[in-house]
């Protein structure tokens, strides 16, 4: 485990979640897990194992049917829609496999988008977005549209966006799934830097090589945690 003394920033207690997609799919069948502040956790499992559901529950995109999900002391299972929106906007930052950038917004505008909903003024958020894009090495792509950027560049814009409101937790769902290996390594290096800066990172992947960037690997299968593999401090 990471630093055993650190308080858990995320806690799942016996979480259950069932979907009805043509039949009953038990995506979470009683999962308990806690993430310490500043830890780096990878979730691995075959597709359909429930690893994305886990990420969505922690990120406030979804709520559990049963059990509790606590993020930064806030119980998401009883949170209102607005509270969930606030969690998504300020407590966590998402990085998706398909980038999920707004197609008609420039890089700066995409990075600034969370700040719009957080009530920032135009000048402030543009300044903040510019700094973040410079930090991820895209200082020369500020007013490019997503279609004018490569896959790796798009993912770096997405990472900059995830950092816009300075959330404690970064949630990455297959962040290297749509980029080549070399670019993937740079993305993982960037996540490593964020970890070093003190962010709590939860990474979902099906690639062992990518998962090994974390401090521990949570193996899930059929909605339950199979085992937790400790890789030690990195």
């Amino acid at each position: 485990m990471g630093s055993a003394s650190a308080a858990p920033v995320v806690e799942l207690a016996d979480v259950r979640k069932t979907y009805y997609v043509g039949g009953v799919v038990e995506a979470m069948a009683g999962v308990s897990l806690s993430l310490d502040a500043g830890s780096y956790t990878a979730v691995m499992g075959p597709s359909g194992s429930g690893k994305s559901t886990l990420l969505n529950l922690v990120g406030g995109l979804d709520t559990p049917d049963e059990g509790r999900v606590t993020v930064d002391g806030r119980d998401l299972s009883t949170a209102s829609e607005d509270e969930l929106a606030a969690v998504r906007g300020t407590d966590v930052g998402f990085v998706f496999q398909t980038f999920n950038l707004m197609p008609r917004l420039t890089a700066v505008e995409n990075v600034a988008l969370p700040l719009v909903f957080d009530g920032w003024g135009r000048a402030d958020r543009t300044e903040r977005a510019r700094e973040l894009l410079e930090d991820v090495g895209l200082g020369d792509r500020l007013s490019h549209l997503p279609t004018e950027l490569s896959g790796g560049q798009r993912q770096r814009v997405a990472i900059a966006r995830a950092l816009a409101t300075d959330p404690a937790i970064i949630l990455a769902d297959e962040p290297t799934g749509n980029v080549d290996t070399e670019t993937g390594d740079r993305i993982m290096a960037l996540l490593g830097e964020l970890h070093a800066d003190g962010h709590t990172i939860l990474l979902v992947t099906h690639e062992r090589r990518i998962a090994e960037h974390a401090e521990r690997i949570v193996h899930v299968r059929d909605g339950t945690i199979e085992r937790i593999e400790d890789l030690g401090d990195r």
Binding site: E81, F94, F117
Partner: peptide, 16 residues
């Protein structure tokens, strides 16, 4: 729809 999803994922409330 997808853009709405993105906006919600980065903190947009329903009323936004």
């Amino acid at each position: 729809t997808r853009e709405i999803g993105i906006m919600k994922a980065v903190g947009a409330r329903n009323r936004d």
